[in-house]
């Protein structure tokens, strides 16, 4: 591990100021991904600004019904929160399907969003990787890419975003609140992460020194149901091959409104807007769900070793939507 300085921030402004002075510094929260990447030599910050003890550790309800999740709320506390379990089951389920109990206790809301891809080449200093070392090349397209992208990838990078939580937040139209050297701003979750393009080293639209302070969940319509379904190689403690987060508002056997996000398929949580459009106002039947899934996946460009994800996503999406449509009100 490269040597680094360690500073503890007292408040958000102080944390932002500390990092503004350090172009090669990084924020540290739970550290479950960052410390590992530092040990691997993938991340080499020369300063860590510890933000774990900032006063961003509460989940509070705003007057307009928004649930505001502080950035340092742990993944386990968020999954267990009664308001989240009752109103946003998709989020609780996504969190509980990720990592292990020990990791969820350390990992934070903000940190979960900023975790890096688990592409094996990204984590292996002995191989090229455009995300880790821009311009060095991408062995994944011709090499091992079973877990990698089928949608939205570029010649430079076929990595997937590993978060389950972010997929649920994408379907919930969550808004990420940040503070940086230029002040505060609100970024829709669906616009936080980028597609790789020719700058795969940039996972998100955040600028250096911009700190996530909270994530806002807008209220759902009372009739809405939501759920998360994850497919992986073993029953627990594994990243998604594919996953589906969906929010459905049914009305008389039809779909009044629906929001769908896919995990394990792209460089960012993939909002399935083609499928959503096909389903708004349509009968809530398995046939229509399948047609919508296939319409969404018609844009997929699978690699040689991950074409299995196309039928897997379609089946998982149909199963998720059928399950939600059949749920008692």
């Amino acid at each position: 591990m490269k040597p680094f300085r360690y500073q503890r921030a007292r408040d958000v402004r102080g944390a932002v100021d500390m990092l503004a002075q350090a172009p090669h510094g990084a924020f540290l929260a739970g550290g479950t991904n960052l410390v590992d990447l530092m040990r691997l030599g993938v991340a080499t910050p020369d300063l860590l600004v510890d933000v774990r003890r900032l006063a961003c550790d509460r989940i509070e309800e705003l007057p307009d019904g928004t649930l505001r999740i502080g950035a340092t709320v742990s993944n386990s506390e968020l999954a267990a929160d009664r308001r989240v379990r009752r109103r946003y089951p998709v989020l609780s389920q996504a969190l509980l399907s990720g990592a292990s109990g020990q990791l969820r206790n350390l990992a934070t809301t903000g940190g979960n969003l900023l975790q890096r891809t688990r592409c094996v080449y990204f984590q292996d200093l002995t191989t090229p990787c455009n995300k880790r070392e821009p311009g060095s090349g991408c062995p994944a397209r011709e090499g091992y890419h079973r877990e990698l992208a089928i949608l939205g990838w570029s010649q430079a990078c076929v990595a997937t975003h590993p978060s389950d939580m972010a997929v649920a937040l994408a379907a919930l139209d969550a808004v990420v609140r940040t503070r940086g050297p230029d002040g505060e701003r609100a970024v829709p979750l669906t616009e936080l992460h980028r597609l790789p393009g020719d700058e795969p080293e940039r996972d998100t639209v955040l600028r250096h020194g911009e700190l996530i302070t909270a994530v806002d969940l807008p209220p759902l319509p009372p009739a809405a149901r939501s759920g998360y379904r994850k497919v992986r190689d073993r029953a627990s403690y594994a990243f998604a091959l594919v996953s589906v987060a969906a929010v459905v508002e049914p009305a008389d056997g039809a779909v009044r409104d629906v929001r769908i996000a896919l995990g394990g398929v792209a460089h960012k949580p993939w909002r399935a807007s083609t499928a959503e459009q096909a389903l708004r106002g349509a009968p809530a039947t398995a046939e229509r769900f399948r047609a919508a899934a296939e319409a969404e996946l018609s844009a997929a460009r699978p690699l040689a070793g991950n074409a299995f994800k196309i039928p897997l996503v379609c089946n998982t999406l149909v199963a998720t939507l059928v399950g939600l449509a059949d749920e008692p009100p």
Binding site: Y6, L28, G30, T32, D36, G101, Q102, L103, N105, L106
Partner: peptide, 25 residues
């Protein structure tokens, strides 16, 4: 690397992986 659980300790009563925790924090 945070994958096996052998280093588990309780931090403030909650189980956590001590290999991914920096002592200074």
């Amino acid at each position: 690397h945070g994958q096996c659980g052998a280093c588990t300790v309780l931090l403030g009563g909650r189980r956590a992986l001590s290999c991914l925790a920096l002592a200074v924090a």
